[in-house]
């Protein structure tokens, strides 16, 4: 399996999914195109480009040649993003950032504990002060007002 063929298959599936999901939107006519008209054209174009990629993808690099060395780090960072998305408005910006920065500096990167602590506290509270207090960009405070 090559990279281009996998990409092409993904595009075809995505295009077909959009065609399916579009069915609830009126298509209209050519003289009065409805909200589903342009999405349908784009979805069909995606399918066409996907088919071209599958057809010409024989010579592209094999999928197994891709290196995934950074994947554990990437997964941890995405986990942090998920954590932030779920808890930011519940426990507040400063506490969320203390946990996330502490995890990234202390657990993932294993930098010296005092430096990790300094950076974690400095950036969690410093950016809150910069954006919320100084620039008046409201950041969430969490249930207990902190």
């Amino acid at each position: 399996m090559t990279v281009d063929r996998v990409s092409g298959a993904f595009l075809v599936l995505l295009g077909l999914l959009v065609v399916w999901e579009r069915r609830v939107l009126p298509l209209g006519t050519a003289s009065r195109p409805g909200p589903g008209y342009v999405p349908l054209i784009l979805a069909l174009l995606l399918v066409i480009f996907g088919v071209i990629l599958i057809a010409q993808g024989k010579g592209s690099k094999p999928l197994r040649s891709l290196s995934w060395d950074e994947a554990p780090h990437a997964a941890a960072i995405l986990g942090c993003c998920l954590f932030i998305s779920v808890l930011l408005e519940t426990i507040g910006y400063r506490v969320t950032m203390l946990i996330v920065m502490g995890f990234l500096f202390g657990v993932m990167e294993r930098i010296k504990w005092w430096l990790a602590l300094m950076l974690t506290i400095g950036f969690s509270f410093g950016t809150f002060w910069l954006f919320d207090t100084l620039l008046r960009v409201p950041l969430p405070r969490g249930g207990w007002g902190f």
Binding site: I77, C80, C81, I84, M97, V100, M101, L104, F105, E109, I111, L119, F123, T127, F131, V137, L139
Partner: peptide, 12 residues
């Protein structure tokens, strides 16, 4: 050290 800080700024 840099990337967690960049992540934080992206988020804010």
């Amino acid at each position: 050290i840099l990337y967690p800080i960049i992540l934080l700024f992206c988020l804010v």
